[in-house]
């Protein structure tokens, strides 16, 4: 394939393009032809019942799950078996997990600086500076030398966001970032994400936080049984959903 992307205007293409993406776990057909795209700077929230494939879909974007049919193109780079492409995409795509997945044997600061030092080959002092800046941005610079196990869930998730941001990603993926948190900690994490959204980051967020979605999202995608059944701006999505299944889903989560 010839790279026809013009050097002068790299932003005209969407950051993420998914075309007819299929994925099977054994015989189970999880993704049944997902087609969508995400523009630079857009915030897309994905909702849907559990088992609908929403988490699996965002995990295919950085190849934590391999799709078996269709195309995924991230910032102009197609996701194929080519390991160099996968590594290049992972460097530019940050991910935040439901279970935080901080490295328990490393301090908070080491968690944040690990990838910049080992993957981006930054000098340790530079990486430390950037890490402290990010920890300040997520509001916990004083925890830098503690270990993840000594932090609350909300603090851990904020460290996880700082860790992903330390790689200077172009896209951030959030896989149910607040689902494992106690109610009083959800807000501090959503505040950080809101702040990030205002900075213009391209974000894909799987979440059940409807208030947050209404406020931040440019578009909301509804997943059901492995396909996108609804794709609309928040106002239209919540006030005037087209699909009966969306209406049922909304009535279940809004009560």
């Amino acid at each position: 394939m010839i790279d026809t992307k013009p050097e002068t205007a790299p932003n005209e293409e969407p950051m993420i393009i998914a075309r007819d993406v299929h994925k099977w776990f054994g015989n189970f057909h999880v993704l049944r032809g997902v087609t969508t795209s995400v523009e630079l700077g857009n915030k897309v929230v994905i909702v849907g019942p559990s088992g609908s494939g929403k988490s699996t879909f965002i995990r295919t974007i950085n190849r934590l799950e391999e799709h078996q049919r269709g195309d995924i193109i991230v910032d102009g780079t197609p996701l194929t078996q080519d390991v160099r492409n996968i590594d290049a995409i992972r460097r530019d795509v940050g991910m935040v997990f439901q279970q935080f997945n901080l490295f328990p044997h490393l301090s908070v600061l080491q968690n944040v600086t690990l990838a910049p030092v080992k993957v981006r080959k930054w000098k340790r002092s530079d990486a430390d500076d950037v890490a402290m800046e990010l920890l300040t941005r997520v509001g916990i610079p004083e925890q830098a030398n503690k270990y993840p196990g000594e932090l609350s869930g909300g603090q851990q998730q904020r460290v996880a966001i700082a860790r992903a941001l330390a790689m200077r990603p172009k896209i951030m993926l959030f896989d149910e970032p607040t689902s494992a948190l106690d109610p009083e900690m959800i807000r501090e994490v959503l505040d950080v994400m809101r702040d990030l959204a205002e900075s213009g980051m391209t974000m894909i967020i799987v979440t059940h936080e409807i208030g947050f979605a209404t406020e931040v999202a440019d578009r909301i995608l509804m997943f059901d049984e492995g396909v996108i059944i609804e794709d609309a701006p928040p106002a239209q999505f919540f006030n005037n959903p087209q699909q009966p299944r969306t209406q049922t889903f909304l009535s279940q989560i809004l009560t």
Binding site: G94, F97, N101, A115, A164
Partner: peptide
């Protein structure tokens, strides 16, 4: 936990570094 290796890979660490460091 599987998430440990996943988090490392998602940060762009190659497989051998994920093994040695995480």
């Amino acid at each position: 936990h599987r998430g440990q290796a996943e988090a490392a890979r998602a940060l762009g660490l190659p497989g051998w570094q994920t093994t040695m460091l995480i």
